[in-house]
Amino acid sequence: MDQALFYAAAALAVVGALVVIGQKNPIYSAFALIVTLCSLSVIFGLLGSPFIAALQVIVYAGAIMVLFLFVLMLLNVKREEDVPGHGGRAMAGVAVVLVALLAGQAGYVLWNTTLAPAPAFDASTRRMSEILFSPHFLYVFEATSILILAALVGAVALAKKDA
């Protein structure tokens, strides 16, 4: 059952990712990305991480993708023009070769390592919060709030009419 669910979610995630980069219309890309993010949330849940699974839906599929769709609709984005850019097909070929090389190397290493799940694993929200607010990560956590504030101010300053 879990096996079938994992492979279904993985297939959905890959198909969604392929639609993201295969679509000319960015709105469809955004919706396909939401499909990918939600299937990833299922996989996080299957890996025993309910907290991350919930965050994935709330923060990624919720907040971040709404931001993307908001900007797409605000700018009234049309389909991408089909003219090949400078470099054009040659650059695209180089990119495909480089990414294939990277994926091949990493895939070779990963394929030949055996990764077994640890016997005891507790990633409940309670354990997560205990670690997140332990002295080990507390200052990092507080620093992220400053980062978010800086991003907020920066976004307003950049997108203002008379910037």
Partner: peptide, 12 residues
């Protein structure tokens, strides 16, 4: 989240 908000502001 921070990257997306600043990036999209730059896009605008």
């Amino acid at each position: 989240a921070a990257e997306a908000s600043v990036g999209l502001a730059i896009v605008i």
